[in-house]
């Protein structure tokens, strides 16, 4: 049973192939994390799923229905079941609307005029642990953490089946970040939500995601359960990412695997394995193009995988 099924999704802006064929499935109630450096195409993936970015090829099936490229009119009823959270907690709230109006926006858009909007606003604020009088405030009067909670409240207003969250902890202080993740974890369990979460913070992924996919240059290079990936990554890129995560312990001198240079330009994709030039473990065989290989639900795209 899958809730969201993305298959060979491709997006290009002119000559730039931002997504070069992405495939993954998300089961109901499951949290799936997409990780990778900036420019790997993470944000484009979830925007393309939600119909906010173009996708020229491939398929996106939500609840069994093909939604790639369908007109907004047909997509609108489905949007009840699919909510988004954006990177900038304050910037994703319409600046001249009160919080009460903002979190009941989904009801108005979906034409649920019979609802008591004030009561709904109160219920939603309570759900994310914000006092009821916040309904009269404006976004610029909130801290990042509070604005983030408003974003969560709005995303959950229509009790969706899936949340697409772009860097939900970006810009939050460490002490507040935990609160948000706990809230999401809790609501997810209570409401049976599935989530696709994008982040470059691997410590966050470890605590919230059931499965994760690692993206490089608009492709998945590895995918598996969070546990497996953290314990035994097969792709060198994953290994590098995991090792580049400084721990809050001055004596933790972990074996760091240095990544050479920076991601190549999407206009000038390397031949063979696209990670070859930065890979500390590259071999002669890597001039060939690696195929996607899976065993036991752990997939990778590498010709000389780590063991």
């Amino acid at each position: 049973m899958t809730l969201l099924s993305v298959d060979n999704l491709k997006t290009s802006y002119g000559p730039v192939n931002v997504l070069a064929g992405i495939s993954f499935d998300v089961a109901p109630g499951e949290t799936y994390a997409l990780v990778g450096e900036s420019g790997s195409g993470k944000t484009t993936v979830i925007r393309a799923i939600a119909g906010l970015a173009p996708a020229q090829e491939g398929s996106v099936k939500f609840d069994g229905q093909q939604i790639r490229g369908i007109p907004e009119r047909s997509l609108r009823p489905l949007r009840k079941d699919m909510a988004m959270m954006f990177q900038d907690p304050v910037g994703s709230l319409s600046p001249r609307m009160t919080i009460g109006k903002l979190i009941t926006e989904p009801y108005k858009i979906q034409g649920m005029r019979d609802r008591d909007l004030d009561a709904e606003a109160k219920r939603l604020l309570e759900m994310v642990n914000l006092p009821a009088h916040f309904a009269n405030r404006y976004p610029y009067q909130l801290s990042g953490g509070q604005a983030r909670r408003v974003g969560v409240a709005r995303a959950l207003a229509l009790e969706p089946k899936l949340i697409l969250a772009d860097e939900p902890t970006a810009g939050l202080d460490v002490s507040v970040q935990g609160e948000l993740l706990n809230l999401l974890n809790d609501l997810r369990e209570r409401l049976g939500l599935a989530m696709v979460i994008i982040t470059h913070n691997l410590s966050v992924v470890k605590h919230v995601a059931d499965r994760m996919g690692i993206m490089y240059l608009g492709r998945l290079v590895e995918e598996g359960t969070t546990e497996t990936i953290f314990e035994s990554p097969r792709h060198p890129y994953t290994r590098c990412l995991l090792s580049a995560n400084p721990e809050p312990d001055p004596d933790a001198r972990l074996e760091r695997i240095a990544l050479k240079g920076e991601p190549p330009s999407l206009l000038n994709r390397p031949t063979g394995c696209e990670f070859r030039e930065r890979c500390p473990f590259s071999q002669n065989i890597c001039t060939n193009t690696p195929a996607w290989e899976t065993s036991d639900g752990h997939g990778h795209r590498c010709l000389a995988p780590l063991t």
């Binding site: 460490v174 002490s175 507040v176 970040q177 935990g178 609160e179 993740l181 706990n182 974890n185 913070n201 410590s203 966050v204 470890k206 605590h207 969070t226 546990e227 995560n245 400084p246 721990e247 809050p248 312990d249 001055p250």
Partner: peptide, 29 residues
Amino acid sequence: FHEPKHPYTRRLIECDPGHIKTRARILPT
């Protein structure tokens, strides 16, 4: 980092998800 003497420092270090090795359902805040 090893013997913090102020509750804020102690709690701040506890809150860092990088500090918590195993998957936690509830993160400290």
